[in-house]
Design a protein around this nucleic acid. Structure first.
Lengths: 250, 250
DNA sequence: GATTCTGGAAGTGTATACACATCAGCAAAA
DNA sequence: TTTTGCTGATGTGTATACACTTCCAGAATC
């Protein structure tokens, strides 16, 4: 064994846990974009990035290419990669697209039936939501908890749909940078209550094997988030920064 | 135009027309996959590919990464790229997904209105289709002609929708390898006639600014292709090779 | 004979040098 | 002053060497 020993003290501290460097570079750049550390339209310099992350240009290029595949970056020959711009209309559109896609997912799940595993996850998510909502009001941090519950519900249903292309497209919709002037929608208790009730009805439709009803309910469910977003934006034009519990991904 | 001149004697003969080699490698590998030259599940060896295409591994890797972004390849760390498998259910599902997405595109177009340019393209496509169909029967090659007409119609409507993410997702749906035992649907005259009539109705709905009707019509339009495919496959289990005019992309 | 260990081969991951394209700035000519 | 062409700087594109991981075959051991 040669023990080349990676003399890099690895200031990255990020862990760089698995596989190859390209993947960890990808994660870090993605977070930088989604977190708003680099602004839309900005050009990403390969050598600068490689110096910042203490790796060579090769894994950096690999990561950028992969991120372009996810739709987060644009590529132009001999000009490199730039952070893709997501104007507000495109962000709003993304909810419609996601609504259509998740609708199809719900239909597939209803057609194919829920596997035991996914059914358990969903029932647990529904029960947890019921428990969280039964007090009739929210405390600090409850919205973050519900965010996870919501995620479990949607993920399980998507898994039940059993289609990889669908999963990936929906994943892309979720990764649309909401950063444009920080469009964060703060959901109130009654918003969450309504959404949670949607979940119950969608689950019932899926269990009853009513594909088109499941699709319709899911479409409306996701589309209503768009409505909330649009309504929210038309009230206060720009929103500085979510106070505490704020999320847009319900 | 600079006439970049590519001094490459390049036995490849492919032309390698523009920009960088990675892009042309990408095109060639994509065609190899879509054309069935490499089979599903097959592992792509980087050095072998680079020797075949007379380039180094670097552009090969770039191309493979990009193709993975398009969903044509799978990637596993330290194992490289493999041709993604598209089992028949996934191919059928892709039509449902595409139906949902193109439905949204039609809705957007109806909401936003058709720009003059796209309107002209569509009207020309409709007129050309009318002319082609008015004889009441098809000759050899007519189906190929209609394939282009059909493409123009859908592309123009998609352009009118004005959403990049939507365009890219639909593009991915179109690139699903239909190769799995060559599932080619041969459309008859009356099939094309029905589809062309759909186009007229969709156009009318868009011009009348009736978004939901446009969406519904487009969904049905695309979904009916799936129905044709499924019906076709249930008749003859495997189909050797399309006789002459054969296409699945209407 | 079955199991485990151990090279070694095959192939991917990374670094790096160099080729090439693009663009900005300056200079020279109209 | 404007335009054109040169030239260097910056940064991407490609080739290639080497490091590392994985996997398989064959030997040693039980």
């Amino acid at each position: 064994m040669t023990e080349s020993m990676e003399q890099t003290a690895e200031v990255t501290a990020g862990g760089a846990r698995a596989g190859n460097r390209a993947l960890s570079v990808m994660d870090r750049v993605r977070e930088a974009i989604l977190g708003g550390a680099v602004s839309a339209g900005e050009r990403l310099n390969e050598v600068q990035l490689s110096k910042t992350l203490s790796v060579s240009r090769t894994p950096v290029r690999a990561a950028l290419q992969a991120l372009a595949g996810e739709g987060l970056l644009d590529y132009a020959p001999n000009r490199g990669f730039t952070v893709r711009e997501f104007p507000l209309p495109a962000i709003v559109d993304a909810y419609d697209i996601r609504a259509a896609l998740e609708g199809v997912a719900a239909r597939f799940a209803a057609e194919r039936g829920l596997p035991a595993k996914e059914r358990e996850i969903i029932e647990r998510a529904l029960a947890a939501g019921d428990k969280l909502l039964e007090r009739g009001a929210f405390e600090a941090g409850d919205l973050t908890i519900y965010r996870d519950i919501n995620g479990d519900f949607h993920d399980a249903l998507l898994a039940a749909a059993g289609n990889r292309m669908l999963s990936e497209m929906i994943r892309i919709c979720h990764h649309v940078p909401v950063s444009s002037t920080r469009n964060i929608v703060v959901f109130e208790y009654h918003d969450v209550r309504r959404r949670h009730d949607d979940h119950h009805r969608i689950f019932e439709a899926v269990m009853a094997r009513e594909p088109w009803r499941a699709e319709m309910l899911m479409r409306e469910h996701v589309a209503s988030i768009k409505t909330s977003l649009v309504g929210y934006l038309s009230e206060r034009k720009t929103y500085p920064s979510g106070p505490q519990a704020a999320d847009e991904s319900l």
